[in-house]
Design a protein around this nucleic acid. Structure first.
Lengths: 146, 146
DNA sequence: ATAAATGCAAAGACTTTGCAGCGGC
DNA sequence: GCCGCTGCAAAGTCTTTGCATTTAT
């Protein structure tokens, strides 16, 4: 009987392209990142998710894979708070973030005007802009009280 | 002979205002931060500076003092690279930073247009903006080759 | 005098690394 | 079968903390 489903799991392509072997941990981590809502997960978050649904994987592997993904441009690493790094799938749209100081929630936004202006500023200072990070800190109206 | 100089070392006022005792380590750290060029020092940087010119102070004290200063609003903590935090005197002008990916140098800039726009964006998302961080990553023209 | 600040060393949080065995290709 | 990947545990880096002593007020 013929098999209609794709012969390779989703995400394999990205891994191949990055020169990474298609392994179970890597695929699962990709899945977890894709499914994540909000998009930002710490290594521990990913690890817990793995433990909950899978056989055992090592935390070290999570860190290794996330670092490899970062190098490959598959994920982006952020340092919102301080201690822990968080990772998110790099969708290529290069959005920015706003963090609620009361609830810790992270929302996303993107603004072309700002990006244009930043590029201009960099240029005025003698830099060729490669990337940028904007993090806004504020209080969301739903958490004024807290 | 009368003494024209102020009776208290520079910086004492800021410390008092913050409810912190005026101690030698705190004054020295303030001085070091004021003199720093560029403005951004890691705890280790401050520590080395202390060791070079003073009796022995502990690295733990440096961290403690910098944290207290941060709480008091005297300094701001940044996480440009990843690993190490860097500190700079909070001059109140709330400028932003651009990091050269080749040399690691950090330059500063300030742009009111961007700040206005960010405030607006936050507001549109339902947030009251408290603070923001912008870090640009690029290559300075002097380090294209490196 | 009293409470706070310091130094030291030890502990902590987060992340990376070494190595023997397992698993894609 | 080969080379890369994984798990485990150990090491690393940066930062914080406990406690006895010193210091500012």
């Amino acid at each position: 009987m013929s098999q209609a489903a794709p012969s390779l799991p989703l995400g394999s392509h990205d891994l191949r392209k990055a020169g990474l072997k298609v392994t179970r941990p890597r695929l699962r981590i990709l899945e977890i990142l894709e499914a994540a809502e909000p998009h930002h997960l710490s290594a521990e978050d990913v690890y817990r998710e793995l433990l909950a649904n899978d056989h055992d994987f090592g935390l070290a592997t999570v860190y290794r894979v996330l670092s490899q993904f970062e190098t490959a441009g598959i994920v982006t690493r952020h340092h919102f708070a301080g201690g822990q790094a968080v990772f998110e799938l790099d969708t290529g749209d290069n959005h920015d973030h706003i963090v609620c100081l009361k609830s810790g929630e992270v929302a996303e936004f993107k603004d072309v005007r700002i990006e244009k202006r930043l590029k201009q500023i960099a240029s005025e200072l003698g830099y060729t802009l490669t990337d940028h990070r904007i993090v806004l800190y504020g209080v969301h109206q739903d958490h004024r009280d807290a």
